[in-house]
Design a binder for these strands. Structure first.
Lengths: 156, 156
DNA sequence: CTTGCTCCTACAGTCACTATAGCATGTATA
DNA sequence: TATACATGCTATAGTGACTGTAGGAGCAAG
């Protein structure tokens, strides 16, 4: 008597778009769904839990690649949680780097906006500041290091 | 006797990749370059300035669409700088929103990492927290609102 | 029997680049 | 002069995490 439902229902219960669920299946973070006779994906409770795990992890900034690893680890209860710890700490570091970069941007933007009281573009200190040098340098210093994939989080 | 140089030189002087310059030309934030007899793009000082403007703006989080507008405005010295101000303030708001979201992520991640002292995945509080509800909600509250394009800034 | 809803696949678009393939041109060295 | 290497060109695909669309099938209610 285990309750079964289709993708639209799963989407509703997890507050996740239907397309996103199909995408998760495609890239292998959700398991391939069992199909009904009419080719429709059928789900049960366990799928809600897995999808929730994914959505929570995404909301905390984890990349889907990391989430795949976290899910694999969570299926091995006797494994050390050292790797989980490592992934989590790495995510925290990424978040903190982004905050640093954004804080510099914020200050610089506030300074620029505060300074400008011109009325014409020719007197606009925002424009002059952007044309000027030396601002970008600070950010480059802080940002640099490898390309970061997680910067791309849009939560609707 | 105005000095002319090719794209590689412009790239060096602005610390910007050759491909990126060609991309900027393609999408119209850099003007179409004058070509030499051998079809190579030729630049002068003014191009350095324009490209610097673009790079500084990017470093401050402006989207290329906004930069296009800022450049257009900066070419009209008699125009009000109200629009510049608006674009800048909007950018600042976006930055601040991102900082808010990331700060919540940071706190939550710190709490999770701090709490977990398990040795096995089965006891791992990071995994349990991710499986659990209610975390993502806070972030959703703060984040929501329209899709934001600027989250995607990788500065090498 | 039509309307409307959900489901399916497959593919294009987003943003700001980055990388690659395959070719032409230009300069420096053997 | 031959060769190697650097740089330039175009065109196209890939990145991450989705979102949107086209075009079709299935199913229940009116």
């Amino acid at each position: 008597m285990t309750e079964e439902f289709m993708i639209g229902e799963l989407a509703k219960r997890t507050d996740c778009k239907v397309q996103t669920i199909r995408y998760y299946e495609q890239i292998g973070v959700m398991p391939p769904a069992v199909r009904a006779h009419n080719n429709r994906r059928m789900y049960r409770k366990s799928h809600i839990e897995r999808l929730m795990f994914i959505r929570h992890s995404r909301a905390l900034g984890f990349a889907l690649d990391d989430i795949r690893d976290l899910l694999a680890l969570s299926d091995q209860p006797d494994h050390t949680c050292a790797e989980v710890d490592k992934i989590a700490k790495n995510n925290l570091e990424n978040i903190q780097k982004k905050i640093k970069v954004l804080s510099i941007m914020e200050k610089e933007m506030q300074r620029m906006i505060f300074q400008c009281h011109g009325e014409k573009v020719s007197e606009c200190l925002i424009i002059t500041a952007l044309a000027d040098h030396a601002i970008a340098e600070k950010i480059k210093m802080t940002a640099s290091e490898k390309h970061d994939a997680t910067s791309n989080n849009q939560m609707r």
